[in-house]
Structure formats: C-alpha cells, structure tokens
Write a protein that binds this DNA or RNA. Sequence first.
DNA 1: CGATGGCGATAGGCTTTAACTATACATGGG
DNA 2: CCCATGTATAGTTAAAGCCTATCGCCATCG
Lengths: 312, 312
Amino acid sequence: MTLTDLRYLVALARERHFGHAAERCNVSQPTLSVAIKKLEEELAVTLFERSAADVKITDIGARIVAQAEKVLLEAGQIKEIATAGRDPLSGPLKLGVIYTIGPYLLPHLIPRAHAAAPSMPLLIQENYTARLAEALKRGDLDVIVVALPFEEPGIVTQAVYDEPFRVLLPAGHGWESEERIPASRLAEAPLLLLGAGNCFRDQVLEACPLCRSGEGLQRTLEGSSLETIRHMVATGAGITVLPSAAADPLPGGNSLLTVRPFAAPEPFRRVALAWRVTYPRSGAIDVIRAAILDSPLQGVKPVGRGSPLPVG
Amino acid sequence: MTLTDLRYLVALARERHFGHAAERCNVSQPTLSVAIKKLEEELAVTLFERSAADVKITDIGARIVAQAEKVLLEAGQIKEIATAGRDPLSGPLKLGVIYTIGPYLLPHLIPRAHAAAPSMPLLIQENYTARLAEALKRGDLDVIVVALPFEEPGIVTQAVYDEPFRVLLPAGHGWESEERIPASRLAEAPLLLLGAGNCFRDQVLEACPLCRSGEGLQRTLEGSSLETIRHMVATGAGITVLPSAAADPLPGGNSLLTVRPFAAPEPFRRVALAWRVTYPRSGAIDVIRAAILDSPLQGVKPVGRGSPLPVG
DNA sequence: CGATGGCGATAGGCTTTAACTATACATGGG
DNA sequence: CCCATGTATAGTTAAAGCCTATCGCCATCG
C-alpha cells in the first residue's frame, strides 16, 4: 500500500470509471486497474464491484476510501509544513550571548532582528562562554555571541566586530587628566574584575599581564556583573576595565564616572557568532549578524569576514 | 514521498542513529540514509543535522515527523478497517422483498438472520419486482427475494423454494365441500386479484388462462395487499388465490375463511434470491438463504440449487 | 601526532516494481 | 450475432529500491 495506490483509489471512487480515473491520475487505464487489484489483494477485501455497465463501490470500499482521503490529506500537510518551514526566517531561533555583551547588545539587537524577521521569535539565554558552547553543541542553542578566541570541534565561528577596552575611573581620579591610559599602568591601581569563568576577566588580564601579580590591589568579584562593578567604581572602590559598549551605555554619562581609552596598542576583544557546522538556517544567522552590525554600540569596529584574529 | 519513507523518517527521529533506525526498519544503513536524503531533497528542507557525534532533528524536522506519525497512524487504520470489514457477515445488508412474500417471510427471516449474523443489520425494502430489480442494479439493494421467472443481465438468480397456490373461499362457499379445486374452475367465480405490477397477479392468471376473459367477475384491486383481499373474501366479495404461506398465516385460522388446495397439477411459484454477479458478500447471501429455508412457511418445498425452472 | 574505530555518505550492481502499449476478454445493446 | 464499450491480462522497458563494499570524516586514545 503506497500513497500512490491511495490516490488511485480515491480517484476511482470519485470517477467510478477506470479509464477516467486513470486519466485524472495521468496514468494508463491498465496501471490503475492493476494497482486497484493489488490493493484489493493486499487488503483482502473487494473495494469495487466491476461490471460492464459501471463500477460500484462496496460498502467496505467506501469506508476505506474515506480513510484514504484522510491519509492523503495528512500527507499533503507534510508538504505544506515543509513549504512553510523552508524559510529560515520562520520559527524560533535559540540565541546565546555572554554576560558581558548581552545587556548592551540585546536592547538594540532584538528590535532590529524582529523587524528583519518578524516570524522568527528569539529565545535568548545569557551565560558564560563555556556554558553557551555546551548548549550549542547539545542543540539547546542555535547561535551564540562570544568573544574570540573560541574554537570548538564541529562549530564554526564568524567574527563580527572588534570592541576596544576602556578604563573606568571614579570622578576625580588622578588619571582623569590623562587623555589615554597605557595598559601597563593598570597594575598600579586597585582593579575590580569579574569572577573566573567570565572570558572578559581573562582578556583584561591578558592585556595587562602585570596585573596578575601587580602592585595594585586586584579584586575579583564573583557573581558580579559589569554594572555592579561600575557602581562600585563610582563609590571609589577602585577602577576597572570595560568593553567600550559597556563603558557608557547611558548617553549623557554618569558624573561620578570617567571613561578613558587606552593608549595604543589599544586592547580589544573580537566578538563573533558561532554555530554548529551542520546548522541549516544560515539565513537566520545572517539576520542576526546584520542586526548586530546595525546596533549602535559605542566604539566598536565591524570586522570583515576574513579579518585576522585579534592580538589579545 | 512514500509511506516507507515516512516510516524511515519516524524511525530515525526515534533512534537518532542511522544504523539503529535502519535495523529497526529491517533495511541496511545506506538504504535509510539515501531515503532520508531524498526526502529532504523532495521537501527542500533539512530534517536532521548530522555530525560525527550524533544526529539532531531540526525544528522543522520535528514538526514533519509529528505529521508523518499522524499519516502512518491513519494509514494503519486502513488495514484495520479492511480486517474488520473482511467478514461478509459484518456491515448492513440491503434486502428487497416483493409485497406478496415480505409480510409472511420477514417475521421469520429477520430473527433467524440476526441470530446467524448478529453484526449484519438488515435494511429492508418491500416493492414490486420491477422496482426491486432497478434498485438491485443501481446498488441500492444487495439481495432481493422475488418470484421466478426473473432474468436480468448482470444478475444471478438462485431458486430457494416452491410455494403452491391456494384457493381462499368465504366460509359457506359452495366449493367448500370439495377437497381440491381444479384451476380451470376459477374462471367461474368472482376472482379478486392484486393490481398490475404485482407478479403474483400475473402468475395466477397464467395458472388459469380462462380467467382473463372468464365468465366469473374478475376484480382487480389496485393498491391493495393480500391481507386486504383476504378481508374482502371474508365479507363475501368473492374468492381469491393466495400463495400458501399467505393462505393461513395465523395458526388456528379464521372461521370466516376456508382454504382449499388446487387439484393437480397444483399451480405454484418458485421463489428465488437474486443479486448482482459482482456482489462480493456471498456469505451474507448464504445466511439469508439459510434463514429463509429455516422459516416455517406454510406448504413450501425447498428447491435444490440445480432444480429445474417451474412450469408456470 | 598518528592509529583506530564509529558513523554517515557514496558507488556499483542487482532485483523488484510500476509504468507503458498492445491485446484479449466480458457484457449489454442494436 | 456482431459491435461498442470497458476492464483484465501479457509482455516489455525504465525506474526505484535495496544490498554490499568502500570511502571520508571526525573524535578518541595510546
């Protein structure tokens, strides 16, 4: 019993004439005749009474035809579902973002992505890079936004933008008079940092190797966010380093805080998208990439697809 | 897209492993692999993400698998319907009976048929032979009970029993003293007959050709039934001829009426079953035949299947 | 870092099947 | 009794479905 057989069956039930039904199915009369006969043998029931005068459907035949129509209807739904779902911009996209990007990027990204792909709801998770990577490989996430370097088997990575680091000082801090801060000087100051697991912490320490064992009091704040640290800087607890998009999220600034760029070579991080090589909805990823690049993030520089890896 | 493809699809969705799914389907791994690939091409969607680690179903794939399961379920119903309907004694049987048999046969036939085939409800119609024949050919009836001769193209006829005719006299009628009445004498009396269209009328006239232009008053009663005529005989309106099963339907008889057999050669009618040659439920017909033969019909003689045609 | 093993994809060959054309067969009607 | 109509059968060819063998990829392990 195949779907083709069922199509022949309902055609014959409608036409009550082998020749006409065959024509409607675009096959020859013997083809349909044989198919019906085989179907009757397989089901071991007589579906039609044939006579020279006409073709009558049996009682049991009518019931089976009704069921066959149901089957064909449901089968047709499969094609419809496929057609509807062929658009990579339809259906939810599970997006993961690291903690030090999410709060600054998402408010811009979400409305832009929604405008570009209205029927693609975003299911968003913020987490550490490692957790996002696991979820991505498991299939719990489709795309993640992370900072490079990020290399995982079976995962492709595409750089999106470079984001310079900034120094955040409390108002009235001695360095306020300086236009640019050399990274090496961070070791002198009490530096407030995120806890382990945050890639940004490691990137800052990489930009200023002296900080690891520096003279300045380096304070690690487990369970904190960049916003918490910003408040602590404002109270004079120390200084910190922020990605530029986080340095001045509120236009107009905060009078208790001062932001200073680094002296060249400016440390920065390269932010990238990552997804499973096998992930089929590349169109959805393109939309996310475009929405990110369209977001007004303070100080970031778009990266061409083939750009070199960042220094730090 | 075939039902086989859909079976492979749901197997793979369950197993998430081409080899295991193939095994469950009793095919080789390449077979399943190719089938899924072709299905994906036909639907133009990626149903699974393959990687060395494992097989993940896509979002759209999951929806299609759910629909495929629905299709397979409905398709399975077809086999179930066929199995349930394979029994010729299941499902309604549309039975037609001529007016001069129905009232005497059906009260016996119905309970017997129901006992023999409890899941075969009888849909019964009484009518003239010609109307029954039309309905039978149209398919509105499945089997009919008629009197021979009855020949129609595409219809097979099977004799069931012979039924002698009886003379019905009002009590006190002059012929009451005679044991048997010669058919020829009917022409002498006022004979009450059913209207045209009733085959029994013709059969009586054939048994007594003189009656057509006989000396006795021959009264044709349009729209009447044998029961009506019986009542008229009781009131002395004339005499009539009845099939034996109708002559004394109530055991104990009616004191106003006298029944007399004919003198030899006794006129009789041969009652038969008829159905379309193509009708597949021969088992159902056998049940009806057996139920008729089991019915206690006054004076009837069963006819073997190969019996000669009746004289009249 | 090369070897190994698991797993899906591909290639080549065979068998089955589903389609066609041509024709036989059955039946009711002139 | 032959003809017209309609279905079943025969015989052939093309396609499909399936199998075995093998490749290629990746991940793991010594």
